[in-house]
């Protein structure tokens, strides 16, 4: 187990190195600079700015310089927001993204499992069809349609919630709902199909034959096995929610990290682009790593020494 974890962590470091290098050269391939605007800066001043931010050095030198800082856990200063470190930007922004992200994950899992169970237990009945329709709709409507729609109906027309911002507990409802829509629908479908499979499995028949009560069977045997696919989905769900937050944060005016996905590139804020890429890569890797570990706990058949995966 320990060996497995160490191996994984080492591999993560290698991945981060590869990713950092690739991103670095890719972003430097785009024309432009952090100081661009409709009004050009006089060449002499432009030169000084480039100098100050080390943009005049040969690409290789810039790369080595960045990597050296990275080894010392220094992500550098933002090139757009003066005297603000990349770490600060990520810290202040991620608090918001994390809040709605965690809520969305909780809501998605809770609602997804619940709906999936309802559907499976009412297999081929009205409730099944209804939940499935809801779930399929959930993965069929883009969040940038759902979000403005929610905003218009509940914010502008009904005035139940504030249109934008995250100042109040109620302000979380719309963004979290919009963000968890897709993963919840996906989980519901996962749980339904694996639940159906489990319910028809032999050990369920054995359990029933043993005379165990319906509830015990459901919880101890069925649910536990049906939830396995949900655990594997945690990794992709994290990625999904990170991507989704770009739209949700823009529409609901939340100052999270999402807006920097596009902003940092438009602004050629090189250090921030790198910082964001690495930060999110680490989150994704950790999410997948935890999935692996969690899977090992939930499913005793899996030994954590298997290759790949």
């Amino acid at each position: 187990m320990v060996r497995y974890i160490l191996q994984k962590l080492l591999f993560m470091l290698v991945s981060i190195f590869v990713l950092a290098s690739a991103t670095f050269f890719l972003m430097k391939a785009i024309p432009g600079n952090p100081f661009q605007s409709e009004k050009n800066i006089p060449p002499a001043i432009q030169e000084r700015l480039n100098e100050a931010y080390g943009l005049n050095d040969p690409l290789g030198v810039q790369y080595l310089h960045y990597m050296n800082n990275l080894i010392h856990f220094d992500l550098g200063m933002s090139m757009k927001q003066q005297y603000v470190t990349v770490v600060d930007i990520i810290k202040t922004g991620f608090i918001y993204s994390l809040q709605i992200g965690i809520f969305a994950i909780i809501v998605a899992i809770a609602a997804g499992v619940l709906f999936g169970l309802i559907a499976a237990l009412n297999h081929r009945k009205f409730l099944d069809g209804f939940t499935i329709l809801l779930a399929v709709l959930g993965v069929s409507i883009p969040s940038f349609v759902v979000a403005p729609f929610l905003q218009y109906v509940f914010g502008v027309k009904l005035r139940w919630f504030d249109v934008a911002g995250l100042n109040d507990v109620t302000d979380f409802i719309m963004p979290v709902l919009a963000l968890s829509f897709l993963p919840a629908a996906f989980i519901a479908r996962l749980v339904r199909s694996s639940m159906l499979e489990v319910l028809s499995a032999d050990y369920m028949k054995t359990a029933r034959a043993k005379g165990l009560s319906g509830r015990v069977i459901l919880v101890r045997h069925a649910l536990r096995n049906a939830i396995l696919p949900v655990v594997t989905y945690i990794g992709p769900m994290t990625a999904n929610i990170i991507t989704g937050s770009v739209v949700i944060e823009q529409i609901f005016g939340i100052g999270g990290l999402g807006k920097f996905f596009v902003n940092s590139i438009t602004n050629r804020d090189y250090t921030l682009i790198m910082g964001l890429t690495l930060f999110y890569a680490i989150i994704l890797m950790l999410a997948r790593f935890l999935t692996d570990i969690a899977y090992g706990f939930v499913d005793p058949r899996i030994k954590l020494t298997r290759k790949g995966g």
Binding site: F11, S15, T23, I30, F261, I265, L284
Partner: peptide, 22 residues
């Protein structure tokens, strides 16, 4: 498999945006 894993851990949105801009 390792290569796949590295690619899979990329925050793809950022890279996709970068690529389309390039």
């Amino acid at each position: 498999n390792r290569i796949c894993e590295i690619l899979y851990s990329i925050p793809s949105l950022l890279i996709v945006i970068l690529l389309i801009v390039v």
